[in-house]
Write a protein that binds this DNA or RNA. Structure first.
Lengths: 350, 350
DNA sequence: AGAGCGTTGGAGAGCGCTCTCCAAGCGTGC
DNA sequence: GCACGCTTGGAGAGCGCTCTCCAACGCTCT
C-alpha cells in the first residue's frame, strides 16, 4: 500500500539528468544552453536523458545566477485615472488600440518563449507598485504604452537602469527608445483625399491636444489643407473616445452647418461623428465625407465602413519589443527610434 | 578620476542589510516576512537599515527556496484559430469581454503585489509552449478563459498539478474549480421583460451552440417563453461577433417579418441586430424590442442603448482569481464553483 | 537559589543552476 | 620524440534567499 516514494515526485534537476547520462552537471548545462563544443555522441546521450527524465530547467535557479528574469513587462501607463465601481476597472481595454499593441507584443515575444507581464500604472500609487515590482527583478525590461504624454514612468524606469521602449515619442524629450508612426504624413493623406474628393469645407476632430500624437495629426492636417489653399480648418477637441467624437461633431455642425468633410484623429471619434451626422440627417459620404485614423476594428464596424489612415500598430508593437530585447541584450546600445509610415485605406465613408 | 567602484552599484542583498543593522541575515529575513517575534527595537533598526540601503528582495532567490513563483498566468485559450496577416494577431481583444476579465483579474491581483503573465493558447503548438512555460515554474497557477468548451488545456494543467480556475463551466465535467453566471436565469429575465412589454412574437439570436453558455442562454430563454405561453421561439445561430448578429437578424427577418422582439445571446450580436433592423426600417424599440446579454461597453455604445442582462464579468474574474490563490495556498482544497446571478439592465432598446 | 521553560537571535545548510577554472586527452610541428 | 596548443569534460564555488536547528538569555516556580 504505502511505498517510500514522496507524494509529489519532485521534478528532476540537472543533477538527475547528469546521473542518468553519466556525465557532469556542467556538461548537461552546456548541452542545454548550446555553449561550447560538446562531443555529438555525448550530446545525444544527454538529450536522451533529458527526454527520459522529463527534465525542465528551473527558471528561478537560472535567473538567480544569470541575473536575467527571462520576462518583460507590458506596462500600460496613465491609463484612465478615474475608476468605475470596484477596486480597479480599467477602461483601457475598451479601446481596440490597446488590444492591437498587446497582440503585436505577444506575437513577437511568443516565438521566443517569453510572455509579457501585464501591468497598469494609472496613478501614483500604481506607479510606485509597478516600480517596486520591477525592482525585484521580475522583468528584464518594459515596453510601455502611455496615454499621457507627460507620464513620469519612462524617466523613472530608465533612471533605475531598466531597459524600456515606448510606443510613441515622449513629450519631454528624454533619452529613451521608441517607435512611432508618422502622424503628420498620415494626416496629410487624409487631407489630400478629402480635397481630391472635392470637399471644400473640411473640419477636424482632434485628440487631446496634450498628447503629441494628437498635435501632430492636427498640424499635419492643417498644413496640408493650407497647402491645398484652405488656410482655415475648423476644429473641435475630443479625447479619443466615441462619445467625445459625437459631441465634437455636434459642436462643429452647430458652428459650420455647411461643412462637407471631417477628419477625426482616431476611428472611435470618427464613429461617434458618424452617429451625430446621421442623427442630423447628413448622409455619409454624400453630404459629408468622414476620414478616421488608425484602421482599427471600429473602422470596419462602422456604417458606412470608415475610410481611414492606417496606423500599423501591431507591427510597431512588434518592433518596439524587438528594440527592447536588443537593449536587454546589450545595455550600452544607443537609444533609437523607429518611425513607421501611415497609409490611406479607402472604404465608403469618404 | 577612476575610482574602484564598480560601474553598476550592485543592488544590496540581505547580507548588506544585516551588516548595516548589526544583526544576522536570518533576523532581517524574519522582519521582512513577519515571521516569529523579533524584538521591536531590533525590528525598527532593521527597517531603517532596509530603507537606508534601498534593499529590495530578489525574487529569483526567494522563488528558488520557497518554490513559489509569486506570479499567476492569465491564459486565453482557444482564442481564434485563424490569424490575420503576420505572426500572431489575436482578435480576442476586439471583444470587450476579454478586457473585462483582464480588468477583474488585475484588480484582484494588484493589491496583493502580483501581476499576471499574459498567455495565449489558440492552437496545439501554442498550447504546448504554454505548458512548457508553466512547467518551468513561471507561475504558481493559472486563471483560464477558454472560448472553446472542449478545450483540453484545463485537463492538461490540472494533470500536471498546476492549480487552475476556469471562467465558465467546462463542457466535459472535469474536476476543476470555476466561476460562472446563471445563464438560464439571465435569459429568463430577458424573456420576462419582453413578455411584460407586450411582445408576442419574440425570436432569439444564439451564440455558437457548441458553447455551453450559449446553450444555457437559449434553453433558458425558450423555457421561460414556453412558461409564458409561447412554445415556439424562432432562433438563428451566431458566433458572438457583431457581423454574425447582423446576418442572423437578416435571416430571422426574412422568415418572420412580423417579429416584435429579439433576445441576442450577447451585446455584440444585439448591436449587429440593431444595424440590420435599422437597415430594414424597423424602429427600436417601437417596432422591435431588442435585449442583449453581458452589459458590455457595446451596450451603451449602441443606438439606442441596449437593454441587456448584466453579466458581472469583472466580479467573476476577481472571484476566479481569489479561488486560484486559495488553491495555490492550499493545494488540497476541494474544487469549488461559484455561480453569479445575472440581472436585467433596462435601457432604451426594450 | 537552582531547575525548567519560553523567547529570541545566529549559524549554516541548502534550493538548482551557471560558469570559471583546471585537468586530461589528443594532435601537431620542430 | 617530446613540448606545446587546442579541445573537451569535471569540480566546485557561489547567486540571494529561507528555514531548521541550536545557543543564549531571562523568566517563573519550587
Amino acid at each position: 500500500m504505502s511505498d517510500g516514494r514522496p507524494p509529489v515526485p519532485a521534478s528532476p534537476t540537472l543533477e538527475d539528468v547528469a546521473r542518468a547520462a553519466g556525465v557532469s552537471r556542467a556538461t548537461v548545462s552546456r548541452v542545454i544552453n548550446g555553449i561550447r563544443n560538446v562531443d555529438p555522441a555525448i550530446q545525444e546521450t544527454v538529450r536522451r536523458a533529458i527526454a527520459e527524465t522529463g527534465y525542465v530547467p528551473n527558471r528561478a535557479a537560472r535567473s538567480l545566477v544569470t541575473r536575467r528574469a527571462g520576462a518583460v513587462a507590458l506596462v500600460v501607463s496613465g491609463a484612465d485615472g478615474e475608476s468605475r465601481e470596484g477596486p480597479f476597472h480599467s477602461k483601457v481595454f475598451a479601446d481596440p488600440f490597446f488590444g492591437r499593441v498587446a497582440s503585436g507584443v505577444v506575437g513577437f515575444l511568443r516565438p521566443r518563449g517569453v510572455h509579457p507581464i501585464l501591468m497598469f500604472a494609472e496613478d501614483d500609487e500604481a506607479r510606485a507598485q509597478c516600480i517596486a515590482y520591477l525592482r525585484q527583478g521580475n522583468a528584464d525590461g518594459a515596453v510601455l504604452v502611455s496615454t499621457n504624454a507627460t507620464d513620469p514612468l519612462p524617466g523613472l524606469l530608465t533612471g533605475m537602469g531598466l531597459p524600456a521602449v515606448l510606443f510613441a515619442r515622449p513629450s519631454p524629450p528624454i533619452p529613451i527608445s521608441y517607435v512611432d508612426v508618422d502622424h503628420r504624413t498620415g494626416a496629410r493623406l487624409a487631407a489630400d483625399h478629402l480635397v481630391a474628393a472635392g470637399r471644400r469645407r473640411s473640419a477636424t476632430i482632434t485628440g487631446p491636444l496634450a498628447v503629441p500624437a494628437a498635435q501632430d495629426r492636427l498640424s499635419g492636417f492643417r498644413d496640408a489643407m493650407a497647402a491645398h489653399g484652405h488656410p482655415y480648418v475648423p476644429c473641435a477637441e475630443g479625447d479619443f473616445t466615441q462619445d467625445s467624437g459625437e459631441h465634437a461633431m455636434e459642436r462643429l455642425l452647430a458652428e459650420h452647418p455647411d461643412l462637407d468633410g471631417v477628419f477625426a484623429a482616431n476611428d472611435l471619434m470618427a464613429k461617434g461623428a458618424l452617429l451625430t451626422l446621421r442623427h442630423h440627417g447628413r448622409r455619409v459620404p454624400e453630404d459629408v465625407a468622414v476620414v478616421g485614423f488608425d484602421d482599427s476594428s471600429a473602422a470596419t464596424a462602422s456604417r458606412p465602413p470608415l475610410t481611414t489612415v492606417r496606423h500599423p500598430v501591431e507591427d510597431m508593437a512588434a518592433e518596439m519589443t524587438r528594440l527592447l530585447l536588443e537593449h536587454v541584450e546589450d545595455p550600452h546600445r544607443p537609444v533609437t527610434s523607429v518611425i513607421f509610415e501611415a497609409s490611406l485605406v479607402v472604404r465608403e465613408s469618404a
